[in-house]
């Protein structure tokens, strides 16, 4: 009975679709691969060339001010970053940071407008919600495959896969934040004759700011968690060290590189959360 219908060639269809996209949008993918790749690479190199001491000092200063002039986060930042430097993983750290930075920025640039659109249109919400569900539940590895097809190997496909994986929270939180603005405030804005964009920028976005920032925080964390996976397609950085250690069964270097990721995660998380409190 179950064999009544022969196997549906879904995999083949997807292959065909991806091939078609590759051919059709080559003119978009190629410059992204070339120029954007170059840009990311340069940024990472540039960051690695700043003396580590200066970077540590700058991070410590940022930590000091965003945490309300307390020393806990400052001490952690200094010791943590020094540890990474001490373990000879500084350049990897800068590459990982660059990857997270670009993936997060792109996710936010796409995610916030998408979230706003979703909050304003029932229709958009109906369409976008299942797409987000799909993006979040599909195993992250799967995104690596089309990423390689479109962008080859290196940092760009890593960023692409990270963006796909990390965008949903900021979209969802933006949508939620705007929908949560109390009806009375929306009415107040309307009653004073606001245009749509005045209402958005003067009332809704300021009211939703904390929720949106919570989404941004989630997005950054997800982008960071994708870094190890992205190393499978040649993205350099700490993730690459972890992967190499895994392949060679070297638990020591694996954990050390892993610590590096944890330190970066904690610093980014605490700094962005503190920013949200202010």
């Amino acid at each position: 009975m179950l064999n009544f219908i022969p196997e549906i060639p879904v995999a083949q269809w997807i292959n065909t679709a991806v091939d078609w996209m590759k051919d059709t949008f080559q003119f978009i993918f190629d410059p992204i691969k070339q120029d954007f790749g170059q840009f990311v690479e340069t940024t990472a190199d540039w960051l690695s060339q700043i003396p580590a001491l200066i970077v540590i000092l700058i991070v410590a200063l940022i930590a000091f001010f965003v945490s309300g002039k307390k020393f806990g986060l400052v001490a952690f930042s200094i010791i943590g970053l020094w540890f990474v430097y001490n373990q000879g993983l500084w350049e990897e750290l800068m590459y990982t940071f660059t990857l997270v930075l670009f993936a997060s920025l792109i996710s936010i640039i796409i995610g916030i407008p998408a979230g706003i659109w979703m909050s304003k249109s029932k229709w958009a919400q109906t369409i976008i919600t299942p797409i987000l569900d799909f993006m979040q539940t599909m195993p992250a590895f799967v995104y690596l495959i089309p990423a390689v097809v479109f962008f080859g190997i290196g940092m760009v496909p890593g960023i692409f896969a990270s963006v796909v994986f990390a965008t949903p929270p900021v979209v969802r939180f933006t949508n939620l934040g705007i929908r949560q603005v109390s009806n009375e405030l929306v009415e107040a804005a309307d009653a004073f004759g606001t245009t749509g964009s005045q209402k958005l920028f003067k009332v809704e976005l300021p009211m939703a700011r904390k929720t949106i920032m919570a989404g941004v925080n989630q997005t950054v964390m997800l982008a960071l968690s994708m870094v190890v996976i992205a190393s499978m397609i040649g993205a350099p950085g700490l993730g690459d060290k972890v992967l190499t250690a895994l392949q060679r069964s070297q638990e020591g270097p694996g954990f050390v590189a892993g610590f590096g990721i944890v330190i970066l995660a904690i610093i980014i998380d605490r700094v962005s959360q503190n920013l949200n409190k202010g």
Partner: peptide, 29 residues
Amino acid sequence: RKVRREKMSMVFQKFGLFPFRTVLENTEF
């Protein structure tokens, strides 16, 4: 919009003030 801006203003039960704006900024809205 013009009528709402120039001819009619509304006062709300739960005040409808914007918490991120000062008293003056609220009044200026």
